[in-house]
């Protein structure tokens, strides 16, 4: 009686899997632009590395581009749009 062998190491064998990526954030959407984190901010065309997230010291996450715009418009001191605490980038 022959038993068949599933050969993992045969050069032919490959497992091509499919996955989706997601930002490891608590929220679904950016509090500034209201777009999904897994999407991208209104300025960007490509999601992911081209439109990254950034966390503040208060643990709120935003699209980097969104919060930069916000911070630059707030003088002298920017606050987190969500909790009104002083905005500091998470180290």
């Amino acid at each position: 009686m022959h038993h068949f062998v599933f050969i993992y190491l045969s050069p032919y064998c490959r497992w091509h899997a499919v996955a989706s990526w997601t930002w490891d954030a608590q929220d679904e959407t950016c509090g500034i632009c209201r777009m999904a984190f897994d999407g991208c901010c209104p300025e960007c065309k490509l999601p992911g590395d081209d439109c990254p997230l950034i966390w503040g010291a208060c643990n709120h996450a935003f699209h980097l581009h969104c919060i930069l715009k916000w911070v630059n418009s707030q003088t002298p001191q920017a606050h987190c749009p969500m909790c009104r605490r002083e905005w500091q980038y998470k180290g």
Partner: peptide, 24 residues
């Protein structure tokens, strides 16, 4: 996750293609 922190993967295990070889 190590390379792309803070992004992580969610597998869609039913999708994709598998090439396999059976030996009798």
């Amino acid at each position: 996750y190590e390379i792309k922190t803070p992004r992580k993967l969610l597998w869609k295990k039913n999708l994709g293609t598998v090439k396999l070889e059976l030996q009798f």
